[in-house]
């Protein structure tokens, strides 16, 4: 059952991801991206990471995607005209991606430790929000503050960069 769900959502996720980079219309790409992220959230659920799954849906599907779609509409982007794709770009991209995948597959095949089924946890994971929260606020207080500063800077920056006329 788990395997079936895993495959279902993984294949959905990968298919939509392919859609993102293959579709010509930016709106379709963005919609594929959203679907891909939602499938990813489902894959997170199969890994018992409920909190991350929820955050994934909220932040990506909720916020990031709206931003993308908003920008696409704002800029009134149309479907790309068929541009001539340079052979060199394909070749270079193919080599990089191919190299990455072959290295990864070799590692995955060669490591027996990776081919074990999911171990059982000692306690039920239903309240993993609490567990993540503990880790976040107890151990990772300092990085959390840094992220706070980062968000402040990003806010200031977005305001600066997107206002038509600064006051």
């Amino acid at each position: 059952m788990q395997l079936a769900l895993f495959w279902l959502f993984s294949i959905l996720m990968l298919a939509f991801a392919l859609g993102v980079i293959l579709l010509r219309n930016p709106v379709s790409s963005a919609m594929s991206l959203v679907m891909s992220f939602i499938s990813l959230a489902a894959v997170f659920v199969t890994l018992d990471a409920y909190f991350i799954a929820v955050v994934q849906v909220l932040v990506y599907a909720g916020a990031v995607m709206v931003l993308f779609l908003f920008i696409i509409m704002l800029l009134d982007l149309r479907a790309e005209k068929r541009r001539r794709v340079r052979l060199s770009a394909w070749l270079g991209g193919g080599i990089v991606v191919g190299g990455f995948l072959s290295a990864l597959s070799q590692i995955v095949v060669s490591l027996p430790a990776l081919h074990v089924p999911k171990p059982d946890v000692s306690q039920p994971l239903a309240n993993d929000v609490a567990l993540v929260g503990f880790a976040l606020f107890r151990n990772f207080n300092l990085p959390f503050q840094i992220i706070g500063v980062l968000l402040l800077v990003a806010t200031v920056g977005v305001v600066l960069l997107s206002r038509k006329e600064l006051k």
């Binding site: 788990q2 395997l3 895993f6 495959w7 993984s10 996720m13 990968l14 991801a17 392919l18 993102v20 980079i21 930016p26 790409s29 990813l40 894959v43 199969t46 890994l47 993308f68 920008i71 696409i72 982007l77 790309e80 541009r83 794709v85 770009a89 394909w90 270079g92 991209g93 990089v96 991606v97 990455f100 995948l101 990864l104 597959s105 995955v108 490591l111 430790a113 990776l114 081919h115 074990v116 089924p117 999911k118």
Partner: peptide, 30 residues
């Protein structure tokens, strides 16, 4: 039951698709 390798391969494929998009597409949004 899916194994760790399953997840890693899927994640690697996702990474590769993303990387391919970065390297091959010309639209900054994509």
């Amino acid at each position: 039951m899916p194994t760790l390798a399953h997840y890693l391969v899927v994640s690697g494929l996702l990474f590769a698709i993303g990387l391919g998009g970065v390297l091959l597409r010309r639209n900054i949004l994509i």
